[in-house]
């Protein structure tokens, strides 16, 4: 009886959460004896090859893969701590906070390079730079900006042409956008001047990289700032229409991180998944130009602008700091 009630409770919990998830899909393993529940901010299409690669190596582990926004992930975990085993997110700061708050399990068996882990409980497994993506047609005959400063000059030179044709993340909605924005602001004042120019041009604000790249490809956008370039590079339909520029002044580079929740009852399978992700095997075996560049596979040594996993990341999550930052950001963009 109690078991049945328990199952019912889980079903109910699952249904109740269903609304929060953007996608949810189970990847069945051939000899499945257990199902690992993964909550991720990476869309299913991009991550499916990695998951099937893992299942090929671990045929007894099925994966229940749920996708949610990086900010939503924090809420979901807060409401139901034991609904998932593994959390994967691009918002390094939010992930670090989960680990800092004691929700992540220490995995002493995992041995990644020291720079890409924190407390042996949060592990980075990709290096993904924020890029400027330009509509190739719009920039025909114009000089391609290589830095933020050159981009500012290009926009100022022809404001009427670019009005309403520039876009970036809405940092109030996107955890990754917020991370990129705060790290940019920390690195250089140029960010604020760029945002002021964006504001004066009536910039469009987006929730995600995907939507920005779609609009770029269709010509609704000429310039998108702080986009994950790898997304644009792998979409065959957009590849010829856009130019991806990794700024040469500095390139804020994010690590996708994975952690195992402390409440998990499948620590071994979860640890195996973390080991698989940090090994980078999935990037070597899978198709070239795969959207997720594994650490150490695409660039050795790691790029200079990589955001490090350290307590400093907690700073921009502080309520006072966040409201000050968002205030400044809004007043820059909404003139």
């Amino acid at each position: 009886m109690r078991g049945l009630a328990f199952v019912a409770l889980i079903l109910w919990a699952g249904l109740a959460r269903a609304a929060d998830f953007e996608e949810r899909q189970v990847f069945d393993a051939p000899e499945a004896t257990q199902t690992l529940r993964v909550l991720s901010s990476t869309d299913t299409d991009s991550f499916a090859p990695v998951l099937t690669g893992f299942i090929a190596q671990n045929p007894s582990v099925s994966i229940d893969y749920a996708v949610a926004g990086s900010a939503d992930i924090v809420d979901i975990i807060a409401q139901c701590g034991d609904c998932f085993d593994v959390v994967i997110s691009s918002a390094m700061d939010l992930q670090l906070k989960l680990a800092n708050d004691g929700l992540a399990r220490r995995l002493p068996d995992v041995d990644p390079s020291a720079g890409s882990q924190w407390r042996q409980s949060l592990f980075g497994f990709t290096h993904e730079p924020a890029t400027i993506v330009l509509n190739r047609a719009a920039f025909a005959g114009r000089p391609m900006p290589k830095t933020r400063q050159e981009l500012i000059e290009a926009l100022r030179a022809d404001p009427e042409f670019f009005r309403g044709k520039v876009g970036t993340y809405d940092v109030r909605l996107s955890g990754l956008g917020y991370l990129f924005a705060t790290q940019d602001a920390r690195t250089s004042e140029t960010y604020w001047r760029l945002m002021e120019v964006f504001g004066s041009l009536g910039a469009l604000l987006y929730c995600c990289s995907g939507a920005m790249i779609d609009d770029l490809a269709q010509g609704d956008l000429f310039v998108a700032y702080n986009v994950l370039g790898s997304y644009a590079a792998t979409r065959p339909e957009t590849r010829e229409k856009v130019t991806i520029i990794t700024p040469t002044d500095f390139a804020t580079t994010m690590m996708r991180t994975v952690l195992v929740l402390d409440t998990t009852s499948q620590a071994e399978a979860a640890t195996n998944l973390v080991r698989y992700l940090t090994s980078g095997i999935w990037a070597e075996t899978d198709r070239p130009g795969y959207p997720l560049p594994a650490i150490g596979v695409t660039e050795v040594p790691p790029p200079a602008g990589v955001v490090t996993l350290e307590p400093g990341l907690l700073v921009y999550l502080d309520a006072l700091k966040r409201s000050l930052f968002l205030g400044a950001w809004s007043s820059a963009l909404e003139q």
């Binding site: 800092n100 407390r119 350290e310 400093g312 907690l314 700073v315 502080d318 006072l320």
Partner: peptide, 26 residues
């Protein structure tokens, strides 16, 4: 109303080799 622009260094300086956890309250 108190406004506190938390300096990045305030927490970054608490980085330790053992990755100690950091808590604060204002």
């Amino acid at each position: 109303q108190i406004e506190l622009d938390v300096p990045y260094a305030a927490f970054a300086m608490l980085d330790t080799p053992a990755d100690d956890r950091v808590f604060y309250a204002i």
